[in-house]
Amino acid sequence: MTMTYYTLGNSGLRVSRLALGTMTFGKEWGWGADRDTGRAMFDAYVEAGGNFFDTADLYTGGTAEAWLGEFIAERGLRDTAVIASKFTMNMQPGNPNAGGNGRKNILRAVDASLKRLGTDYIDLYLMHVWDRLTPAEEVMRTLDDLVRMGKVRHVGLSDVPAWYAGRAQAIAELRGYEPVSALQLEYSLAERAIENEFVPFGTRHGAGIMVWSPLASGLLSGKYRPAQAGNAGRLDGFRNSTHPGFQKFTERNWAIVAELEKVASELGRGMPQVAINWVATQPGIATVILGATTLAQIQDNLGALDFEIQATLRDRLDSVSRTPAPFPYSYFGPQIQARVTGGAATGDKPSGYASPVLVEGEPASVSTD
């Protein structure tokens, strides 16, 4: 395959369209990869041209960061590698300030991650999840301080409400802080909620979307079927969990799985490749995080962008997976808009539109070429 790169949001940081997730590096959670397998997946990804690595302090109790740092050092790739890591989660029971998004924990967490990664800077540092407490002002000021210290290059947010992301970006713009360059969010044929707010926010305000769980925790891989129960798949182990990321066994999702299987067959591709391709080629998506436990899985996933999904097949996937727009988005359709515009035809500015440019001695002009 030929890896291509997108800049992350409005930043100048170039990242490969497929990122390597390291949440499966280590067996501390019971379903990860051992060290040799982790290294083999890392090598396969690098040899395919990948440069973007996603990790977090929480992942396998710190093992993921440690292994990633070692693998990068072994191959002398620190200047090539783009490392993304995250803070928020607490790994010190009984210490309330060893988690969350307050300044004290962020400063503690970044130093711990730098030590495990064996580096003196992190390319992209993200809030892992909204703690429902810390003001965006405190978070953005602290992240900006880390950039000024040289410990962090760019900053981002993961798993936050859209209003919080909007406020954080506005604060950064107003106060001259390092802006949010990335949003890390769940997105797949089975989970399309980010299309309502996050995709428009990211495309309009400079935040590239990093997709996690493009296979819906394995549901879209083809290993699960409605009548099947008790296999060793990860989702089966979470059937009784309340974790929202694993609540995938629904009638709607089984219909998506069935249609995905048909489309994949017509394309002559595996279901995982088609599911990843669909996500990666949606609006606003900068990169898709691949999470695998075997070398064969990562090798297969790396071929996900070597083909195109024809429009008719994409329409079928869109149709089976589309969900009704919630309020207020249900209120923004053609009927309401016609009343807003008085029936006049309007729309987005054409491609190539430029704002009026004043040249001394000449009237303003607008280019629509």
Rank of each mutant, 00 (worst) to 15 (best):
residue 4 T to Q: 03
residue 9 G to M: 04
residue 9 G to I: 04
residue 10 N to S: 12
residue 15 V to F: 03
residue 16 S to F: 02
residue 20 L to E: 04
residue 23 M to C: 11
residue 23 M to E: 05
residue 25 F to R: 02
residue 27 K to S: 15
residue 35 R to N: 10
residue 40 A to L: 07
residue 42 F to I: 05
residue 43 D to N: 06
residue 44 A to N: 03
residue 45 Y to V: 06
residue 46 V to H: 04
residue 47 E to H: 01
residue 52 F to W: 04
residue 55 T to Y: 02
residue 64 A to C: 07
residue 73 A to F: 10
residue 78 R to W: 05
residue 80 T to Y: 06
residue 84 A to V: 01
residue 90 N to Q: 08
residue 92 Q to F: 14
residue 92 Q to Y: 15
residue 93 P to I: 07
residue 94 G to Q: 12
residue 96 P to E: 10
residue 97 N to H: 12
residue 101 N to S: 05
residue 102 G to I: 03
residue 104 K to A: 13
residue 107 L to E: 07
residue 108 R to Y: 09
residue 110 V to M: 04
residue 111 D to G: 15
residue 113 S to I: 13
residue 115 K to N: 15
residue 115 K to D: 12
residue 117 L to A: 13
residue 131 D to P: 00
residue 136 A to H: 01
residue 137 E to F: 00
residue 139 V to G: 04
residue 142 T to P: 01
residue 146 L to W: 03
residue 147 V to R: 04
residue 147 V to D: 00
residue 148 R to I: 00
residue 152 V to L: 03
residue 155 V to P: 00
residue 169 Q to M: 13
residue 175 R to I: 07
residue 181 S to Y: 04
residue 184 Q to K: 06
residue 186 E to M: 08
residue 190 A to N: 02
residue 193 A to L: 09
residue 198 F to P: 02
residue 199 V to D: 07
residue 203 T to C: 07
residue 206 G to S: 08
residue 209 I to N: 00
residue 212 W to P: 01
residue 214 P to F: 02
residue 217 S to V: 07
residue 218 G to F: 01
residue 221 S to R: 00
residue 226 P to N: 09
residue 226 P to V: 10
residue 229 A to D: 09
residue 233 G to L: 06
residue 238 F to W: 00
residue 242 T to V: 06
residue 247 Q to A: 06
residue 250 T to H: 01
residue 252 R to K: 13
residue 252 R to Q: 11
residue 255 A to F: 03
residue 261 E to C: 14
residue 267 L to C: 09
residue 268 G to Y: 15
residue 273 Q to V: 12
residue 293 T to Y: 07
residue 293 T to V: 15
residue 295 L to R: 12
residue 301 N to C: 13
residue 303 G to H: 13
residue 304 A to K: 02
residue 309 I to L: 10
residue 310 Q to R: 13
residue 314 R to P: 06
residue 318 D to H: 14
residue 323 T to I: 11
residue 327 F to P: 14
residue 331 Y to A: 15
residue 333 G to W: 13
residue 336 I to E: 12
residue 339 R to I: 13
residue 342 G to F: 09
residue 342 G to E: 15
residue 344 A to V: 11
residue 344 A to G: 08
residue 345 A to R: 13
residue 350 P to E: 08
residue 353 Y to R: 08
residue 361 G to V: 01
residue 368 T to D: 14
